[in-house]
Design a protein around this nucleic acid. Structure first.
Length: 106
DNA sequence: AGATTGACTGCAT
DNA sequence: CATGCAGCCAATC
């Protein structure tokens, strides 16, 4: 396999490795990809077409919360995560200590 | 080619 | 504990 799948596909591949009921932060993804800053991770997901097989909803900010505005698509995202088994507290945050992804090799 | 923005993060105040 | 600032890399204007 070639090392160069394109920046976005690279990120998509990492996100696709996140197991259900688990969430990862943008910085975590960026660190695993080892090729870009969290901004590019967010951008890559922002350009994701609807109907993709990438569980973009499992990628959230470092605080363990939905990054998008709660009055936007974020409400839909939280619904999906709860359906995956991820629980949110009153602040709409997840427990990264429990649901936080440790990485593809761990 | 230069400036601006973006689903971010971490530290300092 | 809330807010501000700087760093980061790629895409778009």
């Amino acid at each position: 396999m070639t090392d160069n799948y394109g920046l976005y596909e690279r990120i998509y591949r990492i996100v696709h490795l996140i197991p259900a009921g688990t969430v990862a932060t943008y910085g975590q993804i960026a660190g695993i990809v080892g090729c870009c800053s969290p901004r590019q991770v967010g951008y890559a997901l922002a350009v994701l077409p609807h109907g993709s097989d990438v569980p973009w909803q499992r990628v959230i900010n470092a605080r363990g919360e939905i990054s998008l505005n709660p009055n936007g698509s974020g409400a839909f995202q939280r619904e999906i995560l709860e359906r995956e088994g991820v629980r949110f507290n009153e602040g709409g945050q997840t427990d990264l200590n429990k649901f936080g992804w440790h990485g593809p090799l761990c």
